[in-house]
Amino acid sequence: ASAAEKLTEQLAPLTAITGRFTQIQKDAEGDVFSRSSGTFTMQRPGMLRWETLEPFPQLLVTDGNKIWLYDEDLEQVTISSVDEQLNQTPAIIFSGELKQIKQQFDVYTKDGARFSLKPKGSGEVYQRLDIEFENNLIKRMMILDGFGQTTEFALTDVTATAVKPLSHFQFQAPQGTDVLVHE
């Protein structure tokens, strides 16, 4: 089986997973310039709930159609449509049909557990997306962007979970929150 098929085999059974994340960003020289952590739920197709707890509370949820970015400390929620921006994040793995991934990426693997995905388009905003599996669950992801900066997502306490209702991936703004809509 090709690397892409092996990847899709690993991803196919994962309809919904949940766990904790630590996100570390490094510049091209490898110096850490930001670190955050929180909890996540990813569900096919294209649903993500990414709740940063440290250093700031921030909730990003998408139902595959709209994205809500809620900043409690700014008392604002920004609503935008799923777009190119989100496809540059690990959410793409859960964003659509598996054949879409094969269309958009050249996929490489040596051991069937660690995969590298290189966007097929030119002038891509990121150079490579790595995904690492461990006992059939995603353990780590990394994005190498156009500046040579890396954003690494270390996932822990990852478990497959029952499919959650759509409302889990949508957001109701609390009273008094500024709602900002991006066309």
């Binding site: 996100q23 960003q25 310039f33 930001s34 990414w50 940063t52 921030q58 990003l60 970015l69 900043d71 700014l74 604002q76 920004t78 935008s80 921006q85 989100l86 540059q88 994040t89 690990p90 959410a91 905003v125 990121y126 994005i143 962007d145 156009g146 500046f147 900066q149 954003t151 900002l180 991006h182 066309e183």
Partner: peptide, 30 residues
């Protein structure tokens, strides 16, 4: 008016130069 949102920032200031990095919640759009 039509560009609201929130970004992470990292501002490094040196005597004659500065470098400001802005990016989105999942590190995208640097």
């Amino acid at each position: 008016p039509d560009h609201s949102g929130s970004v992470y920032f990292n501002w490094k200031q040196l005597p004659e130069q500065f470098a400001i990095l802005l990016n989105g919640p999942l590190g995208q759009g640097s």
